[in-house]
């Protein structure tokens, strides 16, 4: 099981702040492909991954990064702090 978190408009499009997912995805990109195939709201949220950022166990990562050993994946738009 992996915890998947969504923030900002990704959270709004999917309609959930977080969920536990049983997945065999090897990489973030594989997980995204799996989520896209679920329902229209996921397909909408993940339509353009260039507009998204991902963090693995709270560290920024690439979509090509492996998921082995990862407990928490977060998807969100580019950050707008400061």
């Amino acid at each position: 099981m992996i915890e998947v978190l969504y923030f900002a408009w990704v959270r709004e499009r999917i309609g959930l702040p977080r969920e536990s997912i049983e997945t065999g995805a090897a990489t973030v990109a594989d997980l995204v492909a799996e989520l896209r195939g679920r329902e229209a709201r996921y397909a909408a949220a993940f339509a353009d991954t260039a507009a998204l950022r991902v963090a693995l166990d709270q560290e920024l990562a690439d979509f090509s990064a492996p998921l082995a050993g990862v407990r928490e994946v977060a998807f969100f738009p580019p950050m707008t702090g400061g």
Binding site: F7, A8, W9, A55, L60, A74, F76, P77, P78, M79, T80, G81, G82
Partner: peptide, 20 residues
């Protein structure tokens, strides 16, 4: 802090809400 700390701003105005 502007682009590497995980904050997201949403502006709420008379015409609705919009993510920055």
């Amino acid at each position: 802090l502007k682009s590497r700390a995980p904050f997201w701003k949403k502006e709420i105005g008379p015409d609705g809400a919009e993510w920055v």
